[in-house]
């Protein structure tokens, strides 16, 4: 038995409308994507959608109060809120460098939490 789902791709700003064919709980084919990066996104979107999380952690002694962070790879969409809350409970010491791994395996599925901006120490 096969069914079709239409998803809006959020990988890039094009926002392609992609049709995904699902058979027995497996995404078997996609159409409508303007680039190949749309395929894995659309397949995941109908089975277990994922997103890259961007959030904030607290920064100690830095030029800014907060440091922006992102996950090294997409995390499950259903976990976004809990993971943002978890990020906010973390305090790191300045200085930080963009790309620093602040927490490894942040989501329990292998995504690290990375600093997304270099911020110097205060003063």
């Amino acid at each position: 038995m096969s069914e079709q789902h239409v998803v809006t791709c959020t990988v890039c700003p094009n926002g392609c409308e992609i049709t995904v064919t699902v058979e027995n709980g497996q995404a078997v084919s996609v159409s409508g994507n303007r680039c190949k990066r749309g395929e894995p996104y659309a397949k995941a979107e109908v089975v277990n959608p994922v997103r890259t999380l961007t959030a904030l952690v607290r920064l100690n002694g830095g030029e800014c109060a907060m440091c922006p962070v992102k996950t090294s790879r997409p995390v499950f969409k259903k976990d976004l809120k809990a993971l943002a809350e978890k990020a906010l409970s973390i305090t790191v010491d300045a200085p930080v460098r963009c790309g620093d791994v602040l927490v490894s395996d942040f989501d329990g599925n292998g995504a690290d939490l990375l600093a997304a901006r270099s911020i110097g120490a205060k003063g």
């Binding site: 959030a55 904030l56 992102k70 997304a116």
Partner: peptide, 22 residues
């Protein structure tokens, strides 16, 4: 703009705003 969506065409990589700026 700490969200992602920057740089795909210019840097061939999806970046956050501060990463693009840096």
């Amino acid at each position: 703009c700490i969200h992602t969506g920057f740089g795909l065409a210019f840097y061939k990589e999806e970046l956050t705003g501060p990463e693009f700026a840096e």
